[in-house]
Simulated assay, not measured.
Amino acid sequence: MATAFRASSRGYRADLDAHERRLLSSLCADVIELLEARTAELADASDPAGSGPPLSEDRAESTEEASVFAHFRAELAGLDSSESLEAPQDEVLARLLPDASGDPEQAAQLRRLSEGSLRESKISDLRTARMLLETSPVHVTEEQAPPFGRALNDVRLTLATRLGIRTEADAETVHQSAVSSRAKTTETFMAEIYTFITWLQETLFTAMVELLPEEDEQDEQDPGGTPDADGGDRR
């Protein structure tokens, strides 16, 4: 049975059963596949004939290099194009990759500049989460906690969209369905998973907040943000 995230000497820890970790990892993989399909769709649209010259073996990037420079390549690809980019038709993708402006023309321009980077960032978070879910208990360092939490949120948003959750009232209805329904249908099963992920994400954020120093305590420990010897600020 799953236990809430709590602070540990290595950051944060939660005990999840093997089937719970497999389920979460599988859901992360599903969202990755959805985001990568969007990337492939846009690539095909911009180069339908696949006219780009193949790289020679000595110029091929390693997997690690590809991951490091993915955000930059995505942004440069947007800067190189003069065309606007329409929002994805898929309802889940539209929620994961929302418009950055209420003005349609401006939103399309901003999407061209930023969507590629956002997709790559989300894929990176989801892959980090899958890696962390391979071990039991699940240990998340302070540096890994934000991307892990973002990955959980993207999975939760995906389920929320499929369940038709748009308001707090919708979320409460789904929660009640998850805890009270005896009939096991696809929708009630999705509701249970949504409720579980929401709870798990909240316990992680609660554990993170509990470790934050009080403002008064921080000021007493470091009044004025005294610089270190190298000129940096210790804060």
Rank of each mutant, 00 (worst) to 15 (best):
L132T: 00
L79G: 12
D80T: 12
W199L: 01
E187F: 01
E168G: 08
T186V: 02
L212E: 15
E172Y: 07
S101V: 03
R22F: 07
Y194F: 15
G225Q: 11
F148N: 03
P146N: 08
L24A: 04
P146H: 07
S46Q: 10
A7Q: 14
D30A: 13
S121I: 03
L212A: 15
L34G: 05
S26N: 09
L118H: 10
V140G: 00
P98V: 09
S81D: 15
D219G: 10
V209D: 14
V179S: 10
D228I: 01
M1S: 13
A107W: 02
A70L: 01
S46G: 03
R59Q: 12
R235Q: 08
R22M: 11
T226D: 09
E65F: 02
G224P: 04
L79P: 00
A49D: 14
E210I: 03
S62N: 07
S67V: 08
A43K: 08
E61R: 12
L212Q: 15
T63V: 10
T128N: 13
A14S: 11
L152Q: 05
A77R: 11
R150M: 10
I32H: 04
E91F: 02
D216T: 14
G116K: 02
A18S: 11
D47C: 04
R10A: 14
E61L: 11
A37K: 11
S124G: 06
D154E: 12
V155L: 05
E187A: 07
S81N: 13
P104K: 09
R6D: 01
F69V: 08
S121P: 00
E65Q: 14
L79N: 13
V179N: 02
D233E: 08
S124R: 10
Q106Y: 07
V138N: 05
T135I: 09
A108V: 01
T3W: 03
R119Q: 14
I165S: 00
D17T: 14
D170H: 13
V140N: 00
L23N: 05
S9G: 15
G164S: 09
A70Y: 00
G116Q: 00
T161Q: 02
P146K: 03
L27R: 13
S181A: 15
E168R: 10
